[in-house]
Design a protein around this nucleic acid. Structure first.
Lengths: 217, 217
DNA sequence: CCTAAAATAGCCCGAACGGGCTATTTTTTT
DNA sequence: AAAAAAATAGCCCGTTCGGGCTATTTTAGG
């Protein structure tokens, strides 16, 4: 008996996913959400064993939603869904603490296999399974492991992030570093994009949680 | 030999303060700053033993500047200056970790007495001294201790603060709580004022640092 | 019951933010 | 020396913030 919440902005997609899930007798879809906010609202009322979360959604994307759900319910199990086999997205999902990553147009059988293994909680191997499935779509690519996976931010970007976390405005940062406010904004845009975050408060959270101890660069 | 940095937006005030300090041979004013940012910039170059910080300044007020200085240099000694004998301000200063609070139009002798005692580091009694001086101006007032001094925020305000710290926009918060965005903004304004902070990033910091463990309200 | 505090909501307005662009210079790497 | 990455800077434009107001309704406390 495993309960699912399906989060996707497309109603057709939600139906298609529910159909696949219905092929496994022990899987129950107890809710569908058309967006991140809806998902959060749903979870306030009722918990699901496994949350299937589309990445590409307007308003609040799957990364952000996952971040918030994990923030409120760290123990929740989230599988992220995407049409793409983007390695960056995949690692981003893992970084956010998602339990898995599924490419949408895989065979239903593969989905069920995967979800059964997640549900049964054989879970230290989750990542291996995800990798295996992902590999089906990336064979012929680079060795996939893009290094430290934390050093996405450049030195300057980390510096600016620290100022943001200290509550500086863009203008303040520009003054402190003797550069133009436009440059600060550019860095900010890049940082937001790289970290899949949406505003400077979330950046501040990120900075405090990752607490780059005295950036030993 | 004690070095001082005087922070005040008024040049006349800085001069007056420096004049008082010059009456004590072991006191040296090594710098003046006309604003919070200037003070921070100065401290990047040179440290002062004691920082005299005016509270009422445009741009970045004394509370905010103190918060940042304490953030970067927790060991620094800061005395906050004000024309008022506002009890709230006084406690706010202590809360931010300032070592003292001086009312501007006190007798120079009292200033020197006070600063000598701070400088000599007899310092657990700092607060007592500050209180004594403050008392000269509050005699005839209420028993001055305004309770827990932490419960400034109402239940609702704490709730909203939490959302802010989670990176929600005002609109998001309004939706999550089913109230108007205007109301959220009103709460936000009140919170900012009560905590003497300037923007939501600083609120996020505050929230995370004070980590209301599961608000047991 | 009555009153003070809190929560709700609106308006105006300037400042700050964030996204989407292009483009040049500097630094690093190959 | 050439190529790639990073840092700099600008522009436009719509959204979000934050401050200053007033005002009504709800909730608590005396």
């Amino acid at each position: 008996m495993y309960t699912f919440l399906v989060v996707d902005d497309s109603a057709e997609a939600r139906e298609a996913i529910s159909d696949i899930l219905s092929m496994e007798p022990s899987f129950y879809v107890i809710g569908q959400a058309s967006g991140g906010q809806q998902a959060l609202d749903f979870l306030k009322q009722r918990k699901a064993d496994i949350i299937l979360m589309d990445i590409n959604m307007p308003e609040m994307d799957g990364f952000e939603t996952t971040r918030r759900i994990k923030n409120s319910y760290p123990e929740s199990t989230i599988i992220m869904l995407s049409v793409s086999d983007d390695v960056q997205d995949f690692f981003e999902a893992l970084k956010l603490g998602a339990q898995g990553y599924l490419i949408k147009n895989l065979e239903p059988d593969l989905w069920l296999d995967y979800l059964r293994s997640v549900a049964s909680g054989d879970t230290p191997l989750e990542k291996r399974i995800a990798l295996r499935i992902l590999k089906e779509f990336t064979e012929g690519n680079e060795p996939s492991v893009p290094e430290a996976e934390q050093d996405v931010l450049t030195r300057r970007e980390k510096e600016i992030l620290q100022y943001v976390a200290d509550g500086y405005t863009n203008r303040n940062i520009a003054e402190a570093l003797s550069i133009s406010e436009n440059t600060v904004k550019n860095h900010l845009k890049n940082i937001l994009q790289k970290l899949h975050l949406k505003n400077r408060v979330q950046l501040a959270r990120y900075a405090m949680e990752h607490e780059n101890r005295d950036d030993p660069l």
